[in-house]
Amino acid sequence: MFRFDDNLKVYLHRDPVDFRYGMNSLSILIEQSMRLNPMDTSLYIFGNRRCDRIKILGWDGSGFWFLLKRLETSHFIWPDNKADIVTMTTNVLHALLDGDDITAIRRHPKRDRRVS
């Protein structure tokens, strides 16, 4: 399991994407649809329609990292947030990657596990 720095920005794309998309197509989607810079030090999370796979795209300063995870016995649960772009902390990202229901994580000022 990967662990990411606590200061890392993480963005979740709300709508499912075509999982034939690779690094180039997803970086264009980040620029045009999310209006963000794919070459900053953030992670961008994308899911498929069945919610059993996610793709993560990130830039480390010299190239893109491209990660894929498929859950075998369950599915990822996206937050009910109506925004096109959802930001999350790395703790919530870890919960998502573990297959936890991140919608059950409530916002609390003293807790770092929040979805906005």
Rank of each mutant, 00 (worst) to 15 (best):
M1I: 11
M1P: 07
F2K: 05
F4H: 11
D6G: 11
N7Y: 10
L8A: 15
K9D: 11
K9S: 11
V10S: 03
Y11F: 15
Y11N: 08
L12K: 06
L12D: 02
H13M: 13
D15S: 11
P16N: 12
V17S: 09
D18T: 11
D18I: 12
D18K: 13
D18F: 10
F19V: 09
F19Q: 09
N24D: 12
N24M: 07
N24W: 10
N24G: 06
S25Y: 10
I28N: 08
I28G: 05
I28A: 13
L29S: 06
I30N: 02
S33F: 13
S33C: 12
R35I: 07
L36N: 08
L36A: 07
L36D: 08
L36V: 08
L36K: 10
P38F: 08
P38M: 08
P38A: 08
D40I: 08
D40W: 08
T41D: 12
S42H: 05
L43I: 01
F46K: 04
F46E: 01
F46Y: 09
F46S: 01
G47M: 05
N48C: 03
N48P: 04
N48I: 01
R49V: 07
C51P: 02
R53V: 00
R53G: 01
I54G: 00
I54H: 00
K55D: 00
G58N: 01
W59G: 02
D60G: 11
G61H: 05
S62T: 09
G63F: 05
W65L: 09
W65D: 06
F66T: 02
L67W: 04
L67R: 02
L67F: 07
L68V: 06
L68C: 07
L68R: 10
L71P: 01
L71D: 01
E72N: 14
E72R: 10
E72S: 10
H75K: 12
F76G: 00
I77A: 04
W78S: 02
P79V: 06
P79G: 07
D80C: 05
D80L: 07
D80Q: 14
N81M: 08
K82D: 11
A83W: 03
T87Q: 11
T87S: 13
M88H: 01
T89M: 04
T90L: 04
N91R: 14
L93T: 00
A95W: 00
L96K: 01
L97T: 04
L97I: 13
D98Q: 12
D98I: 02
D100N: 04
D101A: 14
D101P: 09
I102V: 13
T103F: 03
A104T: 15
A104M: 15
A104Y: 11
I105Y: 13
R106T: 15
R106F: 14
R107Q: 14
H108W: 13
P109V: 15
P109E: 15
K110V: 10
K110Y: 14
D112N: 12
R113Y: 13
R113A: 14
R113C: 14
R114Y: 15
R114G: 15
S116C: 13
